[in-house]
């Protein structure tokens, strides 16, 4: 019963088969290998250049070797920190704090955002307050958190919670408000009550937007934490960097910085993958 003109366009597109590498046609295989190799080269060349400059500039005397040791020396120091178990301790302390803060933010900001997005009077009541807090830099509040909650874990986790809440909260609100009104009309025409409309239409439609907020919050959680750890901490990557600088253990300081970059990258990649997993339908809609 289906016309040719009605075939879904996607069926016509050749599927990207991973097994195609097993194609017996040898010339195509080599071409493919070259293509993959080229792509890898293309994506790593900038990083490699940075590493080369980092290694070369101090050795050639372009910058002070004391303040910017060559990358190889930093990597040796990093390896020592890793072997002695110090690095694991600091990473563990930092990740515990940022995951705790991020987790608490997810648990509080998503329900609150759903309420605010769905219930208009609450949005009107709270939006001036939200605007004020949203535009107050989290780090400016660090002394306040320390004064009220002390120097311990609580103030650090609270700061991460605070910083992570905003992207999640605002994206959740936007997600709920951005649901296609036609879908709501359609669901209402089937007599769905408010609760079921929320559960079956609003919530699933908002999930991708909420996840974008969680991903942003993941990046914030590490950014803010490191700064918080520079004040009155006894462990953590922020502490490591700060402490190493005071003690003139410059390679250790750079080791801490590299580790934070790596963690930031990994966390972001994980959240991007998770986001993609939850919003396949939206990605494809925007593509075609």
């Amino acid at each position: 019963m289906v016309d040719i003109a009605e075939r879904p366009t996607r069926l016509a597109a050749p599927p990207a088969v991973p097994g195609a590498a097993a194609d017996p046609a040898a010339p195509r295989l080599t071409a493919r290998l070259f293509a993959v190799g080229g792509r890898v080269l293309h994506r790593t060349v900038a990083i490699a250049a940075l590493a080369a400059i980092w290694e070369g500039a101090p050795r050639l005397g372009l910058v002070g070797r004391v303040f910017l040791p060559p990358l190889s020396e930093v990597l040796v120091a990093w390896w020592e920190l890793l072997r002695s178990g110090q690095l694991a301790e600091h990473v563990g302390a930092s990740l515990t704090r940022s995951l705790a803060g991020l987790g608490l933010a997810v648990l509080t900001a998503i329900p609150l955002g759903l309420l605010i997005g769905w219930y208009r009077p609450l949005a009107e009541l709270l939006s001036p307050l939200l605007e004020v807090f949203r535009n107050t830099a989290a780090l400016a509040l660090l002394p306040v958190f320390v004064l009220i909650l002390g120097l311990g874990e609580t103030s650090k986790i609270a700061l991460v919670l605070y910083a992570c809440s905003w992207p999640i909260l605002l994206n959740t609100i936007a997600g709920v408000k951005g649901v296609d009104p036609l879908l709501i009309r359609s669901a209402r025409s089937m007599g769905l009550n408010h609760l079921r409309l929320f559960q079956k239409v609003i919530l699933p439609a908002a999930v991708p937007t909420i996840f974008t907020g969680v991903r942003l919050a993941g990046a914030y959680s590490i950014l803010v934490l490191v700064a918080a750890e520079m004040v009155g901490a006894k462990a953590g990557l922020g502490y490591l960097i700060n402490y190493a600088q005071y003690n003139f253990a410059i390679p250790d300081m750079y080791s801490g910085i590299i580790t934070i970059s790596a963690i930031g990258l990994v966390v972001n990649q994980l959240l991007v993958a998770l986001e993609r997993r939850f919003s396949t339908w939206r990605v494809d809609v925007s593509a075609g």
């Binding site: 036609l182 009309r185 359609s186 089937m190 007599g191 079956k200 699933p204 439609a205 339908w281 809609v285």
Partner: peptide, 27 residues
Amino acid sequence: GPGLDRGIVFQQYALLPWRTAAGNVAF
């Protein structure tokens, strides 16, 4: 008010994009 004794078909389909064809019929 709305009721399941009347079904509406909209010009813009109003399908739930996160559900398959079967999932939409199930809705």
